[in-house]
């Protein structure tokens, strides 16, 4: 028993250490976001705002009242969701084909997908900038959606094809014998069973799109399409020589909220063992 108890204490201490390591910066950002601008300029080392340094919800109100910021949030949510949706749909279809069909060049598709994933993002920014300017995609939503999609597709395809491969083929055949067209069998049997994979791919894609900075800052010039990470870096208060750190902190906190919500929603769908009971195991 004693041994058991000490193991548990050890686990808890370990967990706390890891949590501190991971969450301290987040906690500090939150702390900063509640301090007033003057307190930060004057130097306010405490975690909790000192007397008279606290700003209450003022920073948040200011950030949310800021048109530029609101627009960036809107851009980010829109671009990330569309990119995620498209990427997941295309990846689902592609992965299904790869898992189920035998077609020439199947290996090539998979290798190409990996090769794309290995490309450093930065190396593509220059060419993309030129191309987008010529085509007219520069500083538009599609101008960001397309690169986000292409960079998340490989991972999504690989994840999903692994999921599809685990679904017994008999299920689909059973559905076809039961009177389903290939498309009905796919939609009513295969996709529901691959849901955990679909949502895993969706989360990963959304993360990538939401957190991206390089494309966001290089392929946009105005608030028409500028996403949050880029917008935050352009966020300048009244005094250009004095960056509004507490406002930025509040903005950063606000911009993490959607991603937390999305993860909580999607995570619920990622249930293991969904296929149990389909066939004799």
């Amino acid at each position: 028993m004693r041994n058991n108890a000490s193991t548990r204490v050890g686990t808890v201490i370990g967990a706390i250490l890891i949590l501190i390591w991971c969450l301290l910066p987040v906690a500090w950002i939150i702390s900063l976001s509640f301090k007033s601008q003057t307190a930060i300029t004057n130097g306010s080392p405490g975690f909790f705002p000192a007397d008279g340094d606290g700003a209450g919800w003022q920073n948040y109100q200011d950030v949310l009242a800021n048109d530029q910021f609101r627009r960036a949030i809107f851009n980010s949510i829109g671009i990330s969701l569309i990119a995620t949706l498209l990427s997941v749909i295309i990846a689902t279809l592609a992965a299904y084909a790869i898992a189920r069909l035998d077609f020439p060049g199947k290996k090539l598709v998979l290798t190409m997908a990996l090769a794309i994933a290995m490309f450093p993002v930065v190396s593509l920014v220059g060419p993309l900038f030129d191309m987008w300017r010529t085509i007219g995609l520069y500083d538009t939503w599609p101008g960001l959606i397309i690169p986000y999609m292409s960079f998340t597709l490989p991972l999504a395809i690989w994840t999903l094809s692994a999921f599809f491969r685990e679904i017994p083929w008999e299920l689909e055949q059973a559905a076809q014998v039961d009177g389903a067209t290939s498309w009905q069998a796919f939609r009513k049997v295969i996709v529901p069973l691959a849901a955990p994979g679909v949502f895993t791919a969706a989360i990963l894609t959304f993360f990538f799109a939401w957190n991206d900075f390089v494309f966001g800052i290089s392929l946009t010039s105005t608030e028409r399409a500028r996403p949050i990470p880029a917008a935050l870096s352009f966020f300048v208060g009244a005094d250009p020589f004095n960056r509004p750190a507490s406002l930025l902190a509040a903005g950063a906190v606000v911009s993490t909220i959607p991603i937390i919500i999305i993860v909580l929603i999607f995570q619920r769908k990622i249930v293991a063992g969904l296929t149990s009971g389909a066939v004799k195991g």
Binding site: P168, E170, L171, Q173, A174, A175, Q176, V177, D178, G179, A180, T181, V189, P192, L193, L274, T275, S276, G277, A278, V279, K280
Partner: peptide
């Protein structure tokens, strides 16, 4: 004809039930 146009019912060796 495709399987669905043959109007036959089949029981598979491993049952192939729809688990969801």
């Amino acid at each position: 004809l495709a399987p669905r146009d043959r109007n036959l019912a089949m029981v598979f060796q491993n049952y192939a039930l729809y688990p969801h």
